[in-house]
């Protein structure tokens, strides 16, 4: 799948701006970005639901914009908000999805049984989908999205209502699907999830700020990450706002995590001076994590 200059405007607002993507088969590709950065809009264009204002994409050999019908059987799409029938039971929803995708008779029953087992839905079969808990809804939605064994799966913030334990389980399922040969595009604003993706695109205000594997992104980060331990960190934090050469500062428990621009020659000294730290404060360099990548990617462009 590839996209070239994909753009979508809503009136004067540009939701997705010149998005170039290249996604190889057999990977989990993540869209990481804050609220309103255009993740959902990008997915809708790639699934053929929205016509791009500009640019084009080629998804599983189907040219977009164009006739998206042949794509429907090959892709699965789990929408951000639950979009199955709340007034049907879990079993009825599964039956409907199976028949709409042309699965019938024994084949349909076998597939439904398989998914019920795999996604742990047996105890919920007779329950109305609308009355499921958030996590259960997401399990059902994923099961229904993979009903027809799509080769490409779009998941829009699939784990926003899921506890960490279930989230692990959920990602295990995703890796199982990839092992079976599917490719997955997933959007998220959780760093720990983004870290699990094979590749990642960081989106901000409709533009792609960076992409690569999580490791590449962290290695290529042109900033120095410093951690300060000491007293009166709140005051230091306030003094760092807008200081030259300082990209961001965030308190994490008893420490202050500071991103200093990579071209600053002596980052420790600059930080000590800018924050007005006393001798009592200890400064140490640490490895950048994905959140640092995210923060620096979105900050640099904003500046």
């Amino acid at each position: 799948m590839e996209a070239r200059g994909l753009t979508r405007r809503f009136g004067p607002k540009t939701a997705v701006d010149g998005l170039d993507l290249e996604i190889e088969p057999g990977v989990i590709y993540g869209f990481l970005g804050p609220n309103g950065c255009g993740k959902t809009t990008a997915m809708r264009m790639l699934t053929g639901l929205l016509t791009p204002s500009e640019g084009s994409a080629r998804v599983l050999g189907v040219e977009l914009p164009g006739r998206a019908e042949p794509l429907k059987r090959k892709i699965g799409y789990m929408t951000q908000s639950f979009s199955h029938y709340r007034d049907l039971t879990v079993a009825e929803n599964m039956g409907f999805t199976a028949s709409v995708y042309g699965l019938r008779g024994r084949k349909a029953r076998a597939r439904i049984g398989e998914l019920t087992e795999e996604y742990d839905l047996a105890g919920l079969a007779a329950q109305m989908a609308g009355s499921l808990s958030g996590g259960q809804k997401q399990r059902l939605a994923l099961a229904l999205a993979v009903m027809h064994r799509p080769r490409l799966l779009f998941l829009d913030e699939p784990t926003s209502a899921v506890d960490p334990e279930s989230r692990r389980g959920f990602w295990e399922k995703l890796f199982d699907l990839v092992a079976e040969g599917a490719s997955i595009v997933v959007s998220t604003h959780f760093m720990d999830e983004a870290e699990r993706c094979h590749r990642l695109a960081i989106l901000d205000r409709g533009r792609k700020r960076a992409d690569g594997t999580p490791q590449e992104l962290m290695d290529a980060l042109g900033v120095t990450v410093l951690e300060v331990e000491g007293t009166d960190l709140r005051a230091a934090r306030r003094r760092l706002d807008g200081a030259a050469g300082i990209l961001s500062a965030a308190q994490i428990g008893a420490r202050l995590r500071v991103l200093v621009e990579g071209d600053v020659p002596e980052p420790e000294a600059r930080l000590r001076e800018a924050a007005g730290l006393g001798d009592g404060a200890a400064i140490a360099r640490t490895r950048p994590n994905l959140e640092d990548v995210f923060v620096s990617a979105t900050r640099e462009q904003a500046a």
Binding site: K72, S81, H84, R86
Partner: peptide, 13 residues
């Protein structure tokens, strides 16, 4: 209005 459209138009129906 019930939010089912996005799912429905993604199926081959």
């Amino acid at each position: 209005e019930h939010g089912n459209m996005e799912m429905l138009i993604n199926t081959p129906v």
